[in-house]
Each structure stands twice: as C-alpha cells, then as structure tokens.
Nucleic acid binder design. Structure first.
Lengths: 200, 200, 200, 200
DNA sequence: CATGAATGAGCTTTCATTCAT
DNA sequence: TATGAATGAAAGCTCATTCAT
C-alpha cells in the first residue's frame, strides 16, 4: 500500500513544518489558518491530514517524543574519557539549545491541556525517559540512578534557567564543575566500597 | 460618597484568586468569563480593575515576581550545618512544589507572548534572580558563582523533571547527593588553595 | 418652589454642555461616561437629572428647538432695505455657521432613532418652523409662501452644501444673487398684478 | 477547486443590500449581526468580505459616491426648453427622494466619524461634486458658477427641508418659481451685456 | 485529493444602568 | 444629593470546522 505510506510521510512533513509556530506562539494562539499558510497548504488540506487542531498538536508532540536517540548516541562515538563525554553531552545541548527551548515550550503547553495523571501514565513518554536515562548512565559509566537523575536534572535545569533568565549560566563552565564533583564523588564512593570489602 | 474600596488592594486580591486558573489552563485557554466566575465578580468588574486580559496576566506575572523572599529566608533561620541548610531548601521546594509548578507554567506561558529580549532586559526579573542567587550563596557559604548557579540549575531541573515526568526523582535523595558532592568539592578546592598559598 | 427651579436650571446647563459632544461624535458613539466627564459630574449625577441617555438626548433636541428667535429678530433691527435684510440674514448664518452645522448633525441623528411620522407630527417643531417662516416673510416683505419656502430652502441648502463639500459656495455671493433674482421676480409679479387689475 | 465566487462582485452586492439599514438606523446603531441577518449571510461571511464594520461602511459610502451619473444624464435626453429641463431635474429628485434621503443620512453619519479636513480633501468626492456641477451647468445653459451653485443649493435645501419638516415645500412649485426667477435674471444679465457691448 | 467560502459559537470588550455608601 | 463600583447584556470580531466545487 504505497499510497498510505506517502500519506503518512506527508503528514509527518507537515508536522515538522509547524513545530516552530507552536513553540513560538503557543498552542491556543496559533490558528489553523496560520498553520496552513505557514506550511503552504489550505485549511481544507490540513483537515484532510488531521481530524482536528488538537489532534494535530498531539501528533506533533508524539512525533518529537518518538524520534530515536540515534543522533544523541552518535555524540559519544569514539570518546573515551569521562570528562570528554560530559563535555560532549553539554556541547550537544548547547548546539541544539534553540531546538530544546522549543520542545520544552511545546511540552509546557501540552501539559496545560492534558490531565496530568494521564500524561504521566503515557508509555511512550516513560520509555523515552528511560532511554535517556540509559544513555546518561552509559555516558557517566555508573549504575547509580541517583547520579543519573542528578545529571539529567542539572542539564534540564541549565537549559530552563537559560531560557528564562538568559546567559546567566554557561554550559561548559557547569560541565567542568559537574565533572569535577562527579569524579570526586565516584572516587569517594569507591574508597568506601573498598573499605567495606574486607568486612563482607 | 462612593463605595469605599481600596482599589489597589482589591486588585491584588483579584490577581491572587486567578493564579491557579492561569496555571492550570494556560493564558489563551482561560476566558475572561471563566476568570470572573471563578473569582466571583462580573466581567465588568474585571475590566474595572484591569484594562485588558493581557494586562491582567502581566500584572499577575509581575505580582508574584515582586513578592519578597522573606518566607524563603526564614527557612534558614537557626540552621547551622551545610547539610541541614541544603536539606531545608530542598524541603522548602518540596513543600511548595505545587506553587512552583504553577509559577513555572505561568512563566512559560508569559514567554510565548513577549519579545524574549524585552523580558531578559526586565529589571525586576534581574533583581529577583540576583536575590535568589544571594540567598543560595549565603546558604552554601560560597562566593563561587559557578557553584551557586550549579545549585540553582539543579533545583530548577529537579522541579521541572518532576513536573514533566512525575516522581522519577526525589528531592531528599538529590539533596544528599548534592551535599556530598559539594562537600568533597569544597574540600578539594581548599586543599588546592592552601597549596597555592606559599607560592603567592 | 425654588429648589425645583434650580434643579431645572441646572438640568438645562448640563444639556448645553453636552451639545458639542453629541454634534461631533453622534448620539450612539457618545457614552454616558464621556458626557459625565465632559461636563464635570459623575454618571450617577447624570442619572439624577435624566432618566436615560435617550431622554437626555431628546431633551437636548427639544432644548435648542425651543429657544426663542429673539437673537434672530434682532438681526433685522434698524435695517430698511430689502438688500440689507437679505445680506443681514445670510451674514447671521455665516457668523453662526458652526452652531448650525452642529444643530443640523444632531437633528440628522435624531431622525434616525425616531419614527418619522411621529417627528413630523411634533407640535413644537411645526410651530418652530412657522416662526421661522414668519420671520423670513417679514424680512422679504412678501406673503407668497412659495417665495418664503424658496428662501429657506436656499439658505438651508447653502449651509448643507458647505458642511458636506467645504467652501464651494459663499454666503454673500448667493445673497446678492438671491436679492437680484427676488427683486426681478417681485417687479415682474407686481407688473402682472397691475395688468390684471383693470380686468377685475 | 474552490467554490466559484466573484469576490468583488459579491462584495458590491452585499454593500447594496445594507444601504437601507444604515440609512434608517444610523451607523452606530446597526449591529453586524443585524446586517448579516438582513442580507442573509452569517457574521463570519461578512468578515470574509469586509475587514471591519467601519470598512464596510466606508466602502458603502464610496460605492454610492462612485456610481456614475448616467441615469441622471438620461433625464435630460430629448428635452429642449429650459423650463422642461428644470422641471425634469426636480421631478427626478422627487421620484428618487427616498434614495436621496438615505444617501443624505448616511453621509451625515459618515461625517461624524471622519476628520472633516480629510473628507474635504477626498478626490472622489471633489470629482463627484464637479460632475454634478457640470451637469447642472449644462441643464441651465449657463457658465456662471454662482448660478450653478444657487441651483444646487436650492435643490439640496428643498430635499433637506422635506426630510426634516415634511411636505411643507413642493418640488414642482419651487421648480416653477426657480425657472421664473432664473429666466428674469438671465434676461436681465443679457440686457446689461448688450448695453456694455457698444462700449467695448 | 485540494480548495477556500461559509458558518456560528464563543471570545474580549464596552457601556447604559443600578445602588450601596 | 452625589458618587463611582458593580453589573451583565450585547457589541465587534475570531476561528475551528464543514462542505460544495
């Protein structure tokens, strides 16, 4: 069924094209006419591909949440020291900061129209979060969930603070500080672990 | 004689009453009729106190950004160890998490209708951010801006991750981890400083 | 009952003060708040003197329609030739053109909210029109109603054309032309009358 | 393929349909819903063809000011005496009095929302007035602008007086009187002209 | 499939009017 | 009497959605 594939392919292209619009103006402030104009189709066509404005928005949300983490994984290829891996990740965020800002604003928007408990039960989101967690765990070479969360919260926090307050924080500065703290922490942990070994 | 009303006082009361509504539904999805009904006045009265919906929203935003940090400062009273202070702050955030979620969602909303450069130039916001920074600096007993930013980004990040992903992170766990890392880091720094002292 | 007199006197003062406002903006575009502000009272006071906006407007309309023609009559004092009387009247209109424009615009407005047959049945208006007619008859020293109407229509027409088209017509030019035509006509009529006399 | 609609043609049809409504009620008293209902479309459609109520009204005003004077010119076809031409013009006005009343009321309304100097500078209006002037000049077989203005003011005045005071004046009566006066005047002028001829 | 004219519910806002003070 | 805060019906206008072409 090649037709269907084309249809679905085109649908995704349309979604991609209205990502910026939703991010910059917010769901409720964007009109179907604006979307149609922005992506160069008629409102009729829009409704041919999406049953409603809300459906379009939700599909957009799902779309970027389903994107694989391939590009992110590539970031760590052939990088061997912890410091370099941390730097690489923070650099990656810095490079794509504008995209993360937009994704973040759309997500905020999405949360205001959905029942919160429903969102938190969403399997795709859960799986997505876990993929991210695994990625960070591998990068930091640790299995301690607290440390993984710590890193993820820090990265998220830097981005949000930069979005709301401007360049009051810098990615590389925080990356170095984090690397230093993490190294000291991991050393400390392994010290205590070896302490305990004779005991066990 | 007219009805005796403290115009400005009443205006602020009205603002307080519609905080939740804006946070839960988002600026554009809330109607003036809903607001009026929610806070128990007529739409006419709403327009007697605010020239427009946007003005109302902006005043709401300004209002909670101008609130003093008194209650936050009280958190640190009579607390003497670093560990307790960190725990106290994270506890404070945990206790008021719902309020922070709302403030955060409103802020996201606000950013989508304003020119970003204009917001970042806003003096009140700048001052507000600096007050927060000073507060954290005092709590951590450090003057290193990188460390202060680190703490603020971490705290912000935990809140945001919890808002978007649910209870995948816990405040106290992260507080302990942060305290541990910070302590190790500060020790390390003071070690190197004493190394350098003879040189100078 | 002195209070009543004061009340009524004050009412008329208020009316006078909002004449310009109604003329310049039109009945429906003027708000009670604007009126109140313009004449320096509160809306409450306005409603103390007038039961409604419409009543206020109708009273305003009646008010200037009831004004006596004293000032107009004074125009003809000690003027003895027909030419001078015609010139005096046209001059009078020219001098007070702005007032006539306003009166005219208010009247137009009034006609759009009233049933036309009702207006035309109004006794005050009828009497007013007849007073004007008598005045013109006396000024032109003629009893021919057609001539009186002719003069009144001409004067009205000049004013309206000037309001709508600007200074494309001038009062004095038209006054002279009218005097010339009228003189020739009256001569002609009296000629024929004397022709007829022997017949009767 | 979209629905085939001659946008501009349909726009003008809609304008024509709301002429009476505006004339009878006045701009500010007519609501967009009333207009829509009256002309049998939805408010949405109204806004599809006109950006605002004011734009609709201004286009209506322009529309009847741009209508050619063809029908008026036809009035004079195959009429050879001055008396007949004057009678024909006054008859024409009498026949279309209702339309002129309406046009006039709309114009009055229009003047209350526009800056007066702007209106008087309007080229279409100027040209329109001049077309009327030329028409009258041709009908009266005179080049004297004062006489042309005289006739136009008289005709306008009769109409306005009839609108405001009812049938206190009659077109044919005034037409005859005007013809008489004009004939006498033109004779008189040509007499003096021939007097002067020997001199030159 | 694609178009955009048409719809009408519902939005923000205004304003004549009321009434407690 | 005088005030102006409060009201809510109704205005101008928007926009998601439908559907004839």
């Amino acid at each position: 069924m090649p037709k269907i594939v084309d249809h679905d392919q085109y649908r995704k292209e349309l979604l991609t094209k209205c990502f910026d619009l939703f991010a910059n103006k917010g769901y409720a402030s964007v009109t179907m006419r604006q979307i149609a104009q922005e992506i160069g189709v008629s409102t009729g066509t829009l409704y041919h591909y999406f049953p409603s404005k809300q459906a379009l928005f939700w599909q957009l949300y799902d779309e970027f949440n389903e994107r694989d983490t391939a590009s992110m994984n590539a970031v760590l290829n052939n990088i061997h020291t912890l410091q370099e891996r941390i730097t690489a990740i923070f650099d990656y965020i810095a490079q794509n900061e504008d995209y993360f800002f937009k994704q973040f604003l759309i997500t905020s928007d999405f949360y205001q129209q959905q029942d919160r408990t429903e969102i938190l039960a969403n399997e795709t989101l859960k799986r997505n979060y876990e993929l991210n967690r695994d990625f960070v765990a591998k990068a930091l070479e640790t299995d301690d969930p607290a440390v993984v969360n710590f890193a993820m919260c820090l990265a998220t926090g830097i981005m949000v603070v930069r979005l709301f307050e401007g360049n009051v924080v810098e990615y590389d500065e925080q990356a170095q500080l984090f690397h230093k703290m993490l190294t000291l922490y991991l050393q400390d942990v392994s010290l205590h672990e070896s302490d305990e070994l004779p005991v066990s």
